[in-house]
């Protein structure tokens, strides 16, 4: 349990985000956001409540909500499209999630563990999803009919009449230069730092991968120069 000062700091970080005033104008408790919220249909989760907590600066309950509730949001942003006050409860949740990570909240770590696969794929390849991630054995609940034609994944992908899509480990072929540019973005914007706070092991794996790719790229550049010299 955090101290009051820590909870206050968490709230200050949320409120300090440059998006905050953009996403929160006020609230009349009308309930339109919760009415349209897919998560509210199944969870005891209410965007109205999130907005109210922030609006009334209830730092203790904001902290409580960050343990669990903010992760229920499906980020569909229907709430933002409907709110008569032009608030964006979903946008506020996004800020709260980022702050939860910044403060290394255990809840964030627990929630994000199963999401590691997506983060690994994304940060290393720039694609968030790839053909090899959705094979039947990964997700038995998607049933036996996940592909209507039997066959080797590589061959089936080759039967897509677009060269860039004939990949297995990435959704499309991403050039090495592009990937390396992306790593720079991750570093300069603090994304890798956030990842390190959340999951050190995953961070180590990703860092090794990035180093390797960068070396590949350097080698390739040298090759190019040699070719040009010839």
């Amino acid at each position: 349990m955090a101290t009051y000062a820590e909870m206050q700091q968490i709230f200050d970080d949320i409120r300090g985000d440059f998006r905050y005033d953009h996403e929160l104008n006020g609230c009349l408790n009308c309930g339109i956001c919760t009415a349209t919220c897919p998560s509210a249909q199944f969870y005891d989760y209410s965007p109205r409540e999130i907005v109210q907590l922030l609006w009334t600066e209830n730092v203790e309950q904001i902290y409580d909500a960050m343990q669990e509730k903010i992760w229920a949001c499906a980020q569909c942003m229907t709430c933002a499209a409907r709110c008569p006050f032009k608030n964006s409860p979903g946008g506020l949740v996004a800020i709260m999630r980022e702050v939860a990570i910044k403060h290394e909240m255990q809840s964030a770590k627990d929630v994000l563990r199963p999401f590691g696969r997506v983060m690994l794929k994304l940060i290393t390849t720039g694609n968030q999803l790839s053909p090899d991630m959705i094979q039947p054995d990964h997700f038995p609940d998607w049933g036996p009919n996940i592909q209507k034609v039997e066959g080797d994944l590589r061959i089936l992908r080759k039967a897509i009449p677009v060269k860039t899509l004939q990949t297995v480990e990435t959704a499309w072929e991403v050039s090495l230069k592009t990937s390396v540019e992306m790593y720079t973005i991750w570093e300069m914007t603090g994304v890798l730092k956030s990842l390190e706070l959340m999951d050190e092991n995953l961070f180590d794996v990703i860092e090794d991968f990035i180093d390797e790719k960068r070396e590949d790229y350097e080698d390739w550049l040298e090759e190019q120069e040699e070719e040009d010299d010839e």
């Binding site: 990570i101 994000l112 997506v118 991403v174 592009t178 990937s179 914007t189 994304v191 956030s194």
Partner: peptide, 20 residues
């Protein structure tokens, strides 16, 4: 081939990633 995803799936899904 010179393009990445928008990376917003990760942004909306995890909170790792930021506006910048």
């Amino acid at each position: 081939t010179d393009q990445t995803s928008c990376t917003a799936w990760n942004y909306h899904g995890s909170g790792i990633g930021n506006v910048e």
